[in-house]
Design a binder for these strands. Structure first.
Lengths: 207, 207
DNA sequence: CAAAATGGTTGACGGTGTCAACCGGCCACG
DNA sequence: CGTGGCCGGTTGACACCGTCAACCATTTTG
């Protein structure tokens, strides 16, 4: 009764989200429209409005789901006992995600999101990813005994670098620079190497 | 004669670019439309099409101009004899630009550009900014004697970090993380500090 | 049983980019 | 000198978009 009706009412809602995700991963977020989704689902152009107050609410929902997928991807990374190795593994997972799901990554980080504070469920999942980074750095912290503030700055530094690298690699920003193939292929490894150097140098200077 | 006519024909074209820039820096690139520009200029909605084949061509032009402004901003940075100091100065200029002109910065780095290869003049100006980075690292290279490949990777690393930091700072990405104010305020300095550590550590391990 | 809520429909409005046709002035050429 | 063509503007149309409003069938509920 109530559950069945519930299940049926959420049906179109879920189908909207699923179809929107399909659009995003094939054509990119900019060519996502409620009408397009409606059309694909063989339903009137107003039907989605019974489940989403506006386009932004649908967008927020799929951003949230992709963030969840992204966080899971990071969580499923190969783990290593040594904190430095583990951090590197996360960096590799991060960059791999950006390269393997460029349209999803762009959705997360290179797209004007619907005003964040109006869509808390979206930001909650974003926090989760950063939480993983903090966690990995926390382990590293235990072995080196840095103060909390340094760990926060380390986290921001690592995130900045990895995010910047991923953004650059998956965007067209590199093409005009005409770097040779080898440089680009090794970019991730080399960059992660340098992150490691910076952190170790920090240990040395403060530990 | 020819020049006067030339000047007059380019007049509307330039006014379009100028007005589009105004729109971008007040309302952001997403609310930029040819019709809006036309309206502001008191001209018919098709007039701009006599000068730009499509919206993307206007967009490409203003992206190119903003890149130029950005590169100039980097070039006008305070200079220092020590390469490390100079590089840091550039990093500071970079971040400052992103914070002082967030909408321009987003236009450059967080916006789906019109397909780059169709608009070469746009990418040319992008190369210029990266060229400055290479140059600064080249100076550093002279003092440490790293091979060219390492310099390229250093450049990519530095750019990744600074770009990532700037992107994160000027986006809303930080709000949901609820970092305290102090951390954010010192983020730029701390991150640039870590870049320096990584480069110096690289010198030591290879030099 | 009536009333209300739910989840779908069609239709309209204003916004956008873009194509097509038109039109006036100016320049070059027969 | 006249005339044809280009150049830079115009108006009008079309398809797309998000969104508001009204309507309607079904189901749930008081």
């Amino acid at each position: 009764m109530a559950e069945i009706q519930q299940r049926e009412t959420t049906s179109l809602r879920d189908r909207c989200v699923a179809e929107a995700l399909k659009v995003v991963e094939t054509s990119g977020v900019e060519s996502l429209s409620l009408r397009e989704v409606s059309r694909r689902l063989g339903v009137s152009h107003q039907a989605p409005y019974k489940h989403f107050p506006s386009r932004d609410h649908l967008l927020a929902e799929i951003v949230a789901r992709v963030f969840e997928e992204f966080a899971q991807h990071l969580e499923n990374r190969p783990r290593f006992p040594d904190p430095h190795d583990d951090l590197r593994s996360m960096g590799e997972s991060y960059v791999r995600y950006a390269l393997e799901h460029p349209l999803h990554y762009r959705l997360l980080f290179a797209t004007p999101h619907p005003n964040a504070e109006e869509h808390p469920e979206m930001t909650a999942n974003a926090q989760r990813a950063f939480g993983l980074l903090r966690e990995a750095l926390g382990q590293l912290d235990e072995t080196t005994g840095l103060d909390d503030e340094s760990v926060e700055h380390d986290a921001l530094f690592v995130w900045s670098t990895i995010h910047g690298l991923a953004s650059i690699l998956q965007s067209d920003a590199l093409c005009p620079l005409e770097l040779d193939r080898g440089t680009v292929e090794h970019a991730a490894g080399e960059t992660l190497l340098r992150i490691g150097r910076a952190l170790r140098a920090g240990d040395a200077s403060e530990g």
